[in-house]
Protein backbone atom coordinates (compact mmCIF):
# COMPACT_ATOMS: atom_id res chain seq x y z
CA UNK A 1 0.00 0.00 0.00
CA UNK A 2 1.11 3.48 -0.75
CA UNK A 3 1.71 5.66 2.26
CA UNK A 4 -1.76 6.59 3.47
CA UNK A 5 -0.86 10.20 3.99
CA UNK A 6 0.19 10.53 0.41
CA UNK A 7 -2.94 8.79 -0.83
CA UNK A 8 -4.94 11.49 0.86
CA UNK A 9 -3.18 14.32 -0.80
CA UNK A 10 -5.53 14.62 -3.73
CA UNK A 11 -8.53 14.68 -1.45
CA UNK A 12 -7.52 17.66 0.58
CA UNK A 13 -6.50 21.10 -0.28
CA UNK A 14 -4.98 23.65 1.90
CA UNK A 15 -6.70 26.90 2.38
CA UNK A 16 -4.44 29.70 3.15
CA UNK A 17 -4.57 33.39 3.47
CA UNK A 18 -4.04 35.55 0.46
CA UNK A 19 -1.37 38.10 0.05
CA UNK A 20 -4.04 40.70 0.28
CA UNK A 21 -4.86 39.43 3.73
CA UNK A 22 -1.24 39.65 4.61
CA UNK A 23 -1.04 43.16 3.28
CA UNK A 24 -4.02 44.20 5.30
CA UNK A 25 -2.64 42.62 8.38
CA UNK A 26 0.43 44.73 7.99
CA UNK A 27 3.99 43.77 8.35
CA UNK A 28 3.88 43.52 12.11
CA UNK A 29 0.61 41.69 12.37
CA UNK A 30 -0.17 38.03 12.42
CA UNK A 31 -0.75 36.31 9.16
CA UNK A 32 -3.30 33.64 9.60
CA UNK A 33 -4.42 30.79 7.52
CA UNK A 34 -7.06 28.17 7.41
CA UNK A 35 -5.54 24.77 7.85
CA UNK A 36 -6.15 21.60 5.92
CA UNK A 37 -9.74 20.91 5.14
CA UNK A 38 -11.34 17.83 6.64
CA UNK A 39 -10.83 14.69 4.65
CA UNK A 40 -14.37 13.60 4.13
CA UNK A 41 -13.57 11.40 1.14
CA UNK A 42 -16.66 12.48 -0.66
CA UNK A 43 -16.08 11.39 -4.20
CA UNK A 44 -18.08 11.90 -7.31
CA UNK A 45 -17.36 8.37 -8.42
CA UNK A 46 -14.71 5.72 -8.28
CA UNK A 47 -12.56 7.58 -10.76
CA UNK A 48 -13.87 11.05 -10.13
CA UNK A 49 -12.35 13.89 -8.25
CA UNK A 50 -13.33 14.58 -4.70
CA UNK A 51 -16.17 17.06 -4.33
CA UNK A 52 -14.12 18.77 -1.68
CA UNK A 53 -11.22 19.10 -4.06
CA UNK A 54 -13.43 20.66 -6.69
CA UNK A 55 -15.05 23.12 -4.35
CA UNK A 56 -11.69 24.17 -2.97
CA UNK A 57 -10.08 24.51 -6.36
CA UNK A 58 -13.05 26.44 -7.67
CA UNK A 59 -12.90 28.81 -4.74
CA UNK A 60 -9.18 29.29 -5.12
CA UNK A 61 -9.44 29.79 -8.86
CA UNK A 62 -12.25 32.31 -8.45
CA UNK A 63 -10.38 34.23 -5.77
CA UNK A 64 -7.07 34.25 -7.52
CA UNK A 65 -7.86 35.44 -10.99
CA UNK A 66 -9.09 32.57 -13.16
CA UNK A 67 -10.87 33.86 -16.22
CA UNK A 68 -14.43 33.10 -17.24
CA UNK A 69 -13.47 30.33 -19.67
CA UNK A 70 -11.35 28.52 -17.13
CA UNK A 71 -14.04 28.87 -14.49
CA UNK A 72 -16.60 27.45 -16.91
CA UNK A 73 -14.30 24.52 -17.65
CA UNK A 74 -13.75 23.91 -13.94
CA UNK A 75 -17.47 23.94 -13.30
CA UNK A 76 -18.00 21.52 -16.17
CA UNK A 77 -15.28 19.28 -14.77
CA UNK A 78 -16.98 19.41 -11.39
CA UNK A 79 -20.21 18.19 -12.96
CA UNK A 80 -18.42 15.46 -14.93
CA UNK A 81 -16.17 14.38 -12.10
CA UNK A 82 -13.02 14.66 -14.16
CA UNK A 83 -10.87 16.93 -16.28
CA UNK A 84 -10.60 15.56 -19.79
CA UNK A 85 -7.69 15.90 -22.16
CA UNK A 86 -9.83 18.12 -24.36
CA UNK A 87 -10.53 20.48 -21.48
CA UNK A 88 -6.80 20.69 -20.78
CA UNK A 89 -6.03 21.22 -24.46
CA UNK A 90 -8.57 23.98 -24.85
CA UNK A 91 -7.37 25.76 -21.74
CA UNK A 92 -3.76 25.56 -22.89
CA UNK A 93 -4.63 26.81 -26.36
CA UNK A 94 -6.41 29.78 -24.82
CA UNK A 95 -3.26 30.47 -22.81
CA UNK A 96 -1.11 30.42 -25.94
CA UNK A 97 -3.54 32.73 -27.70
CA UNK A 98 -3.52 35.12 -24.76
CA UNK A 99 0.28 35.24 -24.73
CA UNK A 100 0.48 35.69 -28.49
CA UNK A 101 -2.11 38.46 -28.33
CA UNK A 102 0.20 40.24 -25.93
CA UNK A 103 2.84 40.26 -28.65
CA UNK A 104 5.02 37.51 -27.21
CA UNK A 105 6.31 34.32 -28.75
CA UNK A 106 4.20 31.32 -27.77
CA UNK A 107 3.56 27.87 -29.13
CA UNK A 108 1.34 24.98 -28.13
CA UNK A 109 3.07 21.72 -27.23
CA UNK A 110 2.13 18.27 -26.06
CA UNK A 111 4.22 15.67 -24.38
CA UNK A 112 3.57 12.22 -23.07
CA UNK A 113 4.59 11.37 -19.53
CA UNK A 114 6.07 8.10 -18.33
CA UNK A 115 2.60 6.80 -17.59
CA UNK A 116 1.35 7.59 -21.07
CA UNK A 117 -0.61 10.66 -20.00
CA UNK A 118 -0.62 13.33 -22.70
CA UNK A 119 0.00 16.75 -21.18
CA UNK A 120 -0.83 19.88 -23.13
CA UNK A 121 1.69 22.65 -22.61
CA UNK A 122 3.24 25.71 -24.10
CA UNK A 123 6.56 27.31 -24.79
CA UNK A 124 6.47 31.04 -24.30
CA UNK A 125 9.58 33.09 -24.76
CA UNK A 126 11.19 36.44 -24.79
CA UNK A 127 14.49 37.66 -26.21
CA UNK A 128 15.08 39.64 -23.06
CA UNK A 129 15.10 37.40 -19.99
CA UNK A 130 15.19 40.50 -17.80
CA UNK A 131 11.88 41.69 -19.18
CA UNK A 132 9.69 41.31 -16.14
CA UNK A 133 6.69 42.74 -17.94
CA UNK A 134 6.84 39.91 -20.47
CA UNK A 135 7.12 37.22 -17.81
CA UNK A 136 4.32 38.80 -15.87
CA UNK A 137 2.13 38.79 -18.96
CA UNK A 138 2.81 35.11 -19.57
CA UNK A 139 1.94 34.22 -15.99
CA UNK A 140 -1.15 36.35 -16.09
CA UNK A 141 -2.36 34.44 -19.15
CA UNK A 142 -1.56 31.10 -17.50
CA UNK A 143 -3.45 32.01 -14.35
CA UNK A 144 -6.43 33.31 -16.29
CA UNK A 145 -6.75 30.43 -18.72
CA UNK A 146 -5.25 27.16 -17.56
CA UNK A 147 -3.49 27.06 -14.20
CA UNK A 148 -6.12 25.10 -12.23
CA UNK A 149 -7.43 22.99 -15.09
CA UNK A 150 -3.86 21.94 -15.81
CA UNK A 151 -3.22 21.11 -12.16
CA UNK A 152 -6.39 19.06 -11.75
CA UNK A 153 -5.81 17.24 -15.01
CA UNK A 154 -2.35 16.14 -13.98
CA UNK A 155 -3.26 15.17 -10.43
CA UNK A 156 -6.72 13.65 -10.66
CA UNK A 157 -7.11 10.11 -9.32
CA UNK A 158 -6.79 8.37 -12.68
CA UNK A 159 -3.46 10.10 -13.25
CA UNK A 160 -2.33 9.16 -9.76
CA UNK A 161 -3.29 5.52 -10.17
CA UNK A 162 -1.32 5.33 -13.40
CA UNK A 163 1.76 6.51 -11.51
CA UNK A 164 1.26 3.92 -8.79
CA UNK A 165 0.84 1.15 -11.37
CA UNK A 166 3.99 2.25 -13.19
CA UNK A 167 6.01 2.35 -9.98
CA UNK A 168 4.85 -1.09 -8.96
CA UNK A 169 5.91 -2.47 -12.33
CA UNK A 170 9.40 -1.10 -11.70
CA UNK A 171 9.73 -2.23 -8.11
CA UNK A 172 12.81 -4.37 -8.74
CA UNK A 173 14.74 -1.62 -10.49
CA UNK A 174 13.81 0.91 -7.83
CA UNK A 175 14.88 -1.44 -5.06
CA UNK A 176 18.18 -2.18 -6.77
CA UNK A 177 18.93 1.50 -7.25
CA UNK A 178 18.12 2.38 -3.64
CA UNK A 179 20.30 -0.42 -2.34
CA UNK A 180 23.13 0.56 -4.68
CA UNK A 181 22.90 3.94 -2.99
CA UNK A 182 23.09 2.33 0.44
CA UNK A 183 19.43 2.87 1.26
CA UNK A 184 17.89 -0.10 3.06
CA UNK A 185 14.53 -1.23 1.74
CA UNK A 186 11.73 -3.25 3.23
CA UNK A 187 11.39 -6.54 1.39
CA UNK A 188 7.62 -6.13 1.42
CA UNK A 189 7.65 -2.57 0.11
CA UNK A 190 5.78 -1.96 -3.12
CA UNK A 191 7.20 0.02 -5.98
CA UNK A 192 5.10 3.00 -4.95
CA UNK A 193 6.46 2.85 -1.42
CA UNK A 194 9.97 2.66 -2.79
CA UNK A 195 9.31 5.84 -4.77
CA UNK A 196 8.28 7.56 -1.54
CA UNK A 197 11.47 6.29 0.05
CA UNK A 198 13.56 7.58 -2.84
CA UNK A 199 11.95 11.01 -2.59
CA UNK A 200 12.76 11.23 1.09
CA UNK A 201 16.42 11.41 0.14
CA UNK A 202 17.22 13.99 -2.50
CA UNK A 203 20.29 12.00 -3.60
CA UNK A 204 18.19 9.06 -4.63
CA UNK A 205 15.25 11.08 -5.87
CA UNK A 206 17.35 12.49 -8.66
CA UNK A 207 19.06 9.22 -9.47
CA UNK A 208 16.67 6.34 -8.89
CA UNK A 209 13.49 7.93 -10.14
CA UNK A 210 15.24 9.07 -13.27
CA UNK A 211 16.66 5.61 -13.76
CA UNK A 212 13.19 4.14 -14.09
CA UNK A 213 11.77 7.17 -15.88
CA UNK A 214 9.62 8.63 -13.10
CA UNK A 215 9.51 12.39 -13.56
CA UNK A 216 6.71 13.26 -11.20
CA UNK A 217 5.05 11.69 -8.18
Amino acid sequence: MVDFRRRQRDRRYRRSATAATRALAGTAALILVVGCSPDTNKTTGSEGLSEDTFSLVLAEARDEGAGASQMAALEQAEQDGEVTIEMAREATRRTVECIANAGLSAGYTERTTYTGLVIPGYEAGTSNPGDDVAWQQIESCDVAESYWINQLYQTQPTSWQARVDYANLHEAALRACLEENEIETDAQASGAELVDQAIDDSRTAGVCLREVGITSW
Partner: peptide
Protein backbone atom coordinates in the same frame (compact mmCIF):
# COMPACT_ATOMS: atom_id res chain seq x y z
CA UNK B 1 8.02 37.90 -10.53
CA UNK B 2 5.46 38.91 -8.05
CA UNK B 3 3.88 35.67 -7.04
CA UNK B 4 1.95 36.07 -3.90
CA UNK B 5 3.36 34.51 -0.83
CA UNK B 6 1.08 32.93 1.68
CA UNK B 7 2.54 32.09 4.98
CA UNK B 8 1.11 29.49 7.24
CA UNK B 9 1.20 30.43 10.86
CA UNK B 10 -1.05 27.97 12.55
CA UNK B 11 -0.68 28.10 16.27
CA UNK B 12 -2.49 24.99 17.35
CA UNK B 13 -5.68 25.51 19.26
CA UNK B 14 -5.24 29.24 19.29
CA UNK B 15 -5.23 29.61 15.58
CA UNK B 16 -7.60 32.26 14.43
CA UNK B 17 -9.18 32.06 11.06
CA UNK B 18 -8.56 35.04 8.91
CA UNK B 19 -11.12 36.66 6.77
CA UNK B 20 -10.02 36.29 3.21
CA UNK B 21 -10.27 39.26 0.97
CA UNK B 22 -10.34 39.50 -2.77
CA UNK B 23 -7.01 38.64 -4.29
CA UNK B 24 -4.92 40.44 -6.84
CA UNK B 25 -3.95 38.91 -10.13
CA UNK B 26 -1.40 36.19 -9.53
CA UNK B 27 -2.35 32.83 -8.24
CA UNK B 28 -0.91 30.07 -6.19
Amino acid sequence: MHFRRRIALVTGATAILASLVAAPVFAA
